[in-house]
Design a binder for these strands. Sequence first.
DNA 1: TCTATTATTAAACAATTATTAAAATGACGG
DNA 2: CCGTCATTTTAATAATTGTTTAATAATAGA
Lengths: 107, 107
Amino acid sequence: MLTSTQVVEALSALAQHTRLEIYRLLVACGPEGMAAGKLAERMKVSPANMSFHFKALSHAGLITSRQEGRFVYYAANFTVMNGMLAYLTENCCAGNPQDCAIPSQKC
Amino acid sequence: MLTSTQVVEALSALAQHTRLEIYRLLVACGPEGMAAGKLAERMKVSPANMSFHFKALSHAGLITSRQEGRFVYYAANFTVMNGMLAYLTENCCAGNPQDCAIPSQKC
DNA sequence: TCTATTATTAAACAATTATTAAAATGACGG
DNA sequence: CCGTCATTTTAATAATTGTTTAATAATAGA
């Protein structure tokens, strides 16, 4: 279970065009992930800027990294994404995943 | 279907403590929604600041508003939330809602 | 109409974020 | 060790965001 602070952090990390694309790409890449440089080239973003975005994503726990020789591979971590989706579904969707139905009247 | 730009906008709108709480509260409130002032009081936020946050949320399409006498009632709109969840599930979760499984290797 | 109430807008400011360029770190092969 | 490659860090800057205060609408009731 994620705290609301963790959810806000994850939302912030994904609330930016470049980072949402990075995450999408890493999801498609699978558990092996992709080297930082290759990702930077693929996204047409400078390596320094890429590092900045990696930091935001990994601080939120959305990606992991591992060193392999001179390369650093990044990969998507689904745990936080799942936690975020669960939080939004339970707390912001009246508990109805696919069709957020009419919620109970409480005001 | 939401565009990635719409998804980023929705994520940005929710990627802030006060606004996530506003949305949560409005979901719990149901379709009748809640008056702006009451919500501001409940959240311990100044009316002006509240208006600022309302604007972000309604610009993203996450809430709607209606005038009723002197009051303006805000209510959660599930359409965009659903679209956002669908986008994240399909594009950022390898299509596996509740357990984002091991995705296909593409890199 | 005058006044009180409810909410939004505008202006000002502090704080945060995204980007770039330059310097620094760490890893490998000779 | 040296030099090079891959990445990160730092510093500087522009742009965006969140908050406050004051001013402005819009509505309702006396």
